[in-house]
Design a protein around this nucleic acid. Sequence first.
DNA 1: ACCGGGTTGTTCAAATTCGAACAACCGCTA
DNA 2: TAGCGGTTGTTCGAATTTGAACAACCCGGT
Lengths: 151, 151
Amino acid sequence: MTRPRWLDSEEKAAWNAFLEASHRVERRVEHHLREQEGLSHPQYEILVRLADEPEWQLRMTELAESLLTSKSGASYQIGKLEKAGLVYRSSCPGDDRGVFAVLTEEGMAKLRRVAPGHVELVRSSLIDLLSREQLAALTDGLDTVARGLED
Amino acid sequence: MTRPRWLDSEEKAAWNAFLEASHRVERRVEHHLREQEGLSHPQYEILVRLADEPEWQLRMTELAESLLTSKSGASYQIGKLEKAGLVYRSSCPGDDRGVFAVLTEEGMAKLRRVAPGHVELVRSSLIDLLSREQLAALTDGLDTVARGLED
DNA sequence: ACCGGGTTGTTCAAATTCGAACAACCGCTA
DNA sequence: TAGCGGTTGTTCGAATTTGAACAACCCGGT
């Protein structure tokens, strides 16, 4: 067992800033969507993912991977959205195991209604807090991290 | 209702990178601590917070605020750690409402045992993925965000 | 000394998350 | 075409989180 390579003060600062910023932002977004729009953040993200697809649909597994969540978690949330009429499940032609989650018109309408407030919140929680240069540098770092942790 | 100030592509990239990086890192850390050390991330953070205090103790409310979690969440996790013998509750002299969460020797020993592996994971999840310059820029941005969202 | 507003920590129900287990299915190979 | 490893989505129980409700307590002004 080699001696641990402890974090120096800059590295500690980086880690703490990362944890604090991500928790604060997540907390804020979750709270806003919940209170103002009656959606959880995962649910909102599902609507966004589906709306981005040409046919407003995604396989359950693809959806779960896109959300970085478990399959059971995706299944649960799709169930909720289905009850709310924002999404429905559709069988997958050519693969009887498969299930598509499909955005309904009502789901798309909901998303359009909610998006402006959400974008405003994203601005006030991240974008508008930083200069253009800070934002670019932040994106660079975060992207490098995200790419480094893929799979 | 004014027209929403939609995000341009750089802003969208920033937001997506933020969400993806924070989810991937959190997921990785949580998984590692759970599997390798038998602690949840919140629990580990509690041990760290307490160990940082001169007397290894914090009031429940302070602890909750430090963790950016709810009071009930802190209470729950302290209950778990108490059962595990890593922490105990102590009444607060001068304030009968107050409760201190106090780190035990065993808790400190556990933290010392777990810390090296955790630090290695923090390195491989964030620190070592970035150059010194990237890390500094990332810290700057994330700190600005965290400060901007305080309270 | 007493009140009234604020604070502290716990408990509760409800919601959410996860992984394991499972049944059903796919596609390739013998 | 029978079989077999791998995939798909759901269900289950366990763990966790949250806000609301609550009881107990603190304190400054009267």
